[in-house]
Amino acid sequence: MNIFRGIADFSHLAAIIILLHKIWKSRSCAGISGKSQILFAIVFTTRYLDLLTSFISLYNTSMKVIYISCSYATVYLIYMKFRATYDGNHDSFRVEFLVVPVGGLAVLINHDFALLEILWTFSIYLESVAILPQLFMISKTGEAETITTHYLFCLGLYRALYLFNWIWRFYFEGFFDMIAIVAGLVQTVLYCDFFYLYVTKVLKGKKLSLPA
C-alpha cells in the first residue's frame, strides 16, 4: 500500500458517503443518475466476487464490503425509498450501449478465460464508463448541485490517484496490469472536462452550470 492508493481508496469512500449522505439528508435524489448508481453496484458485485474465494487483508475485505453495501443502499434510496424524487426523464442515457460492448470486450480481452477473471475484467471496463449516465444527465439539465460536484470530484480523483499508484508499483514492485491501466486512463480522461469546471467554477464559490 502506497500513499497514492491509500488516499485514493479514502477518496472513493468519501465520494460514496457524500452521495448517500446527500440523498438521505435532503430526502431527495434529484440530479442523481440512478443508472450510474446501478452500474456501480454491478461493478462492485462483479469485481468483489473474490470475497468468497480469497482473503487478502482485513482492510481489503472491509472496504469491499463497505463499497458493496453502500452502493446497494444508494440504489435502494433512489429506486425505492425516494423514488418520487428520482428524475427519470433526464436520466435517459442508454446503458445497454455501455454494458453490451463492455461485456464483449471483457470476453475478448482478459488475462485468463475463466469466469471470475472475465467478471473482474468486465467490472474494470464497466467502471471506466459507469459515470457517463451521470455526466450525460448534468449536460442535459445544464447544472449540478454543488454537493453533487464534490461527489464527482472525489470519484474522479480516486482513479487519477490510482494512475500514480500504478506508476509507483511498476517502479518499486515491477508489476503492472495493462487492463487496469488502460481502463483507468480512459476513466480519468472522462473526468477531465468536469475537473476543469470544478476548479474554475465550484472552487470559486459558483454553482456548476453549463452554457445553454
Binding site: 463499497y67 514492485e173 515491477g174 508489476f175
Partner: peptide, 10 residues
C-alpha cells in the same frame, strides 16, 4: 504480467 499481485487493489 503481475496480474495476481494487483488483485489486492480495490
Amino acid at each position: 504480467c503481475g496480474r495476481q499481485s494487483l488483485k489486492d487493489e480495490l
